[in-house]
Design a protein around this nucleic acid. Structure first.
Lengths: 345, 345
DNA sequence: CTGTTAGCGCCTTCAC
DNA sequence: GTGAAGGCGCTAACAG
């Protein structure tokens, strides 16, 4: 019966005190040993401590350390949609930078839900993370109240939040949208439909406005716009058909505001037998790993997502270290990758 | 100058003591208030505490709590390759389950590097996570030594590790591989090439062995196998060409051992002008969001990844709660999704 | 019903 | 060189 008990209760983790007594010394010396102040210890003592640590498989508790020091060396990353390859690349960048700085990443996925975002913000705060990188759900004020209070340094990725002043890392949306629009015009497209998910996000608005602005200068060209939920495939098909009908005699193209939408648009086109690169042009923000495999290929505007994540963390670290420089907005350039979908035969 | 100082030193977070004194009471009452023992407090006191908390924007420190209780309510998830959509879905499942259980997820990406894995294992342990879900890098013994020691409950996802007894959640690889092989045979394919990344992972081995075994029973059919690194596009092209040449007069098909490889194979086929669904059959483990868009579509064996992640966490929780039941190996069924690539015209 | 007290594991003066 | 003592923020006896 004592056996059962032994199995059930795992041996409690060794503490610094255990190590100390095993090494026949005090906690202080062990602590010193751990914190690189080894030059203060006699070789004999070092020896003993080393052995005791190995013997007990001792690992200092970060919890206790953090409690004492007030620094957790934990970074929170809040991502709106981890399903999105864009987010995954950002995450990889942030993570790489964290590793390089000896920080640990706490990743949270809000699934594009505002209350999840609030929940995680509070959670991270209660764990006393040293800083937060956040890809916000929206730009409305809901989340801000919670944000603005917090004394935790933050950096926004991609999406700005109204009335909330904070460093932002993102794409140079204006330049990128101009590039994209000009490319389509140069390829001879005459009617362009800008498709977007709901305009609840700053980035989407900027892209749309820039697009419309670019098109204004064009005398005999036509700009159209549509808004769809990712799940509304019916609505999307209708939108596409209407566009094709209205500009039946023009060379037509569609711009997709982001990668997730591009996938949905491509599927819809498939279903209604509209072939990109032949019946219609297609261009999407965000590069896609399968872009070259889909029919004749899909032209994309690639963002340096990994670098953006990396840069976001670096910026965050300067804030953590107490930097008081004015708010930064770092805009990265995009890269147009031309494929078959925008080079009509 | 006092202004500068104020800006630089953010107001220290309120502690339970601050709340207590603001509410003119002791820490205990505040603690009780926080821990749902409100029925023990007088309405007047509750009132005051509530106000004090709101006023100071007080949030209890999880660090201190964990230190006291010995439980962090933190779960570690170690993922071999976060780039892989498979992993992302697993993560989403684990995360959903965590949320449902009031646990917080610490996600680590090992990038398929063994030393990263070891590093993170130790890190999670030093943060005293309550449990770990791990998608191991390999099945060699290197990492195990570190693993086996640990008193932290663990659950493996997808990949088993030799000599390490631990619950495992994964696909029913035998059944799935049979399904896949039989499907190709029924479609009239006569020569089948099984392509895999290096055989460093248990799952891949099982799939290969099952495939070979299934093919043994087939009199006039031919089984071939190849091993490639994802980055070795040259080698892959050669492999595909050789296969096509050797079985020039047979109906040929390729099985890809996982989603990442399927992408690479599809690209290689594109480059050498080999058209799936026409020149050759193609079938891959793991469903891909773009599978229907690539040419005539690619047949896949879909895994219930989200559910697997969810189940993994649930299993982990039973262990955390002290369950001593024998090691479980939960194998989920796969689902064959037939598309154009395996229905030769 | 409420407050006082003693640690959780660690680091850090401060003495020896 | 080394160790003892106090406290980080919190919870849980144990008194009142």
């Amino acid at each position: 019966m004592s056996r059962a008990k032994t199995t059930q209760t795992p041996p409690p983790r060794a503490t610094i005190r255990d190590v100390a007594s095993a090494a026949k010394t005090g906690k202080t010396s062990v602590s010193r040993y751990l914190n690189g102040e080894q030059h203060l210890l006699s070789d004999a003592l070092k020896e003993r401590i080393e052995r005791a640590i190995a013997l007990l498989d001792y690992q200092p508790s970060q919890m206790a350390r953090s409690l004492k020091s007030g620094q957790t060396r934990l970074i929170g990353l809040i991502i709106a949609d981890i399903t999105n390859p864009y987010s995954v690349e950002v995450m990889r960048g942030v993570e790489a930078a964290c590793r390089q700085q000896g920080l640990t990443l706490l990743v949270c996925n809000t699934n594009n839900e505002l209350n999840q975002e609030k929940h995680y913000l509070q959670l991270l705060s209660s764990y006393r993370v040293d800083g937060i990188v956040i890809n916000a759900v929206g730009m409305r004020e809901d989340a801000i109240s919670a944000l603005q209070q917090s004394p935790v340094p933050m950096v926004l990725i991609d999406r700005k939040v109204n009335n909330f002043s904070c460093d932002v890392i993102g794409l140079n949306n204006v330049d990128a949208t101009r590039t994209v629009t000009q490319h389509l015009l140069q390829q001879g497209f005459e009617a362009i439909l800008f498709l977007s998910e709901p305009m609840t996000i700053n980035t989407r608005l900027v892209r749309l406005h820039t697009f419309l602005q670019e098109m204004q200068h064009q005398p005999h060209k036509f700009a159209a716009q549509g808004e769809v939920e990712l799940s509304d495939s019916q609505g999307l098909e209708t939108l596409l058909r209407d566009f094709a009908d209205r500009y039946a005699d023009k060379r037509r193209a569609v711009i997709s505001v982001n990668g997730a939408l591009t996938l949905v648009i491509a599927r819809a086109m498939r279903r209604i037998g509209m072939v990109w690169g032949k019946d219609i042009g297609l261009l999407g923000f965000d590069d896609l790993e399968w872009a070259e495999l889909a029919g004749v290929g899909i032209t994309t505007l690639k963002q340096p997502t990994y670098d953006m994540g990396y840069a976001a963390l670096e910026q965050l670290v300067t804030r953590i270290q107490g930097s008081n420089e004015p708010i930064q907005e770092h805009a990265f350039p995009g890269e147009l990758i031309v494929r078959g979908s925008t080079t009509l035969a």
